[in-house]
Design a protein around this nucleic acid. Structure first.
Lengths: 246, 246
DNA sequence: CGTTTAGTTGACCGTGCTCAAGGGGCGTGG
DNA sequence: CCACGCCCCTTGAGCACGGTCAACTAAACG
């Protein structure tokens, strides 16, 4: 997370992520670049960018760090319904809704850019491929949520955790955050538990099972997967739902 | 399901559903009406409108009947990731993606309208409030999927089934398919099980628990809920995620 | 009238949860 | 510099929620 020092140059993840959906024209790239640099902010771990019940009036792009969309039940049970990773947008057109139905909070220190509605609409109007890429990003987010429903409804704990790890790796790869077989993995087991619908205790045991099977190495906030195909097989992972074109 | 006899007049559900998000102008209503009547089709129970892997090239509006979005794992486990009810669209802008990541199949006989991409884009361009309503519909579908993640991850069987029933009622109500305390409920327990991530046996027992508690009456394909507030309390149901404006 | 599909019930079992305790790393304050 | 507290991870024991397998009934259907 050393991005804070030169945040102006940290648009890379967004460009790389959107490029996974559409080849961006120079004009679109320039417009995006300019809009994002306009207002770069940062937040520490455990802060909410926006809460359930708030009125959404702006769109954000994540430049570095991990966040979670989550909902909390009255009695405290928390469910993470999506991770938000560098390059992701949250959310295209969200200001059309009158109220947030979930919260978005940081799991690590985060650097992000904020666009007010008029700026964002201007951006969408500036370039057709850029607009399409943003729509695709939104549709792909939808698809991820569908896959999570399958994950929680029909996969057992081991498959479920393996699947989530495969997804994270395949989402980090196009934004350049996977180095060989490893990637930074800055979140806690509690976060993973809340994302998989498991208890923290059982999540811990499931990770140990994955380690014992030689499928993952996870320590000191670094995830290493030496045989990704084996992990994908264990997870029944099919990457089609990520909708990358290249 | 007697809609087949006079399908030309069955645009009501779509109008009513979109009106829940934005007041539609006369011009928008007329354009929508015209576009939908152009090509009305029907399908029997158990047919797929589109399958995982297919290339999406058109948008559909459901005029009557229930469908499910679902995914199937290699070993046959099925998960319904969403119900598609009368008035729903599937899906705004879907043709931007190169391949379907899930299937959409009928659970009952269905009457629907199909729009090719150019027609749909023309429709979106014809009226601003209509376009916004369609976007809201899409964003609300997103929100429903988030709530499902909470449902499957953090609610126990009884709460989970109760929550799904509350959601269905609150989605059927604005399209005029709730009559007093009752609505047609044309799907099987197997479908409900696949939607809640439960086994068919346990779903059956959970329904009986809800019946024994006096929370629901479900027989002969009709669901009656005499005390909806009690059911909502049991489900920890908060309707904010449906994003209805009126 | 036979066959299929949907719903129901029982018995048994296993995955994953709860409760509880303890260890290690790290930051903070005395 | 050390003590303390906090957060995160780990482990054990017991149990319950929900799954699996199997049989049976009732209704729908051809």
């Amino acid at each position: 997370m050393n991005s804070a020092r030169h945040e102006g140059s940290q648009i890379q993840p967004v460009l790389r992520r959107l490029s996974a959906f559409r080849h961006l024209s120079e004009c679109g790239t320039a417009a995006l670049d300019k809009a994002i640099r306009e207002r770069v902010l940062r937040a520490g771990t455990g802060q909410d960018l926006i809460c359930e019940g708030d009125i959404p009036d702006r769109v954000r792009f994540i430049l570095s760090g991990w966040l979670a969309r989550y909902k909390t039940l009255e009695d405290g049970r928390r469910q993470i319904v999506n991770f938000v990773l560098p390059g992701d947008a949250c959310d295209t057109m969200i200001y059309l809704l009158s109220e947030m139905d979930h919260s978005i909070g940081t799991l690590t220190p985060v650097v992000y850019s904020e666009l007010e509605r008029p700026q964002f609409e201007q951006l969408m109007a500036s370039d057709k491929t850029l607009a399409e890429a943003l729509w695709c990003e939104s549709l792909a987010g939808n698809a991820i949520r569908r896959e999570w429903a399958v994950n929680m409804g029909r996969r057992v704990a081991l498959e479920r955790v393996a699947h989530l790890l495969c997804e994270i790796i395949e989402r980090l790869r196009p934004v350049g955050l996977v180095d060989g077989n490893s990637c930074a993995f800055p979140i806690t087991q509690m976060d993973l538990a809340d994302a998989t619908g498991l208890s923290a205790v059982h999540l811990n045991r499931t990770l140990q099972e994955l380690r014992a099977a030689g499928l993952i190495v996870l320590r000191e906030r670094v995830l290493t997967v030496n045989d990704l195909d084996a992990l994908k097989t264990a997870a029944l992972f099919n990457p089609n739902y990520l909708h990358y074109v290249h």
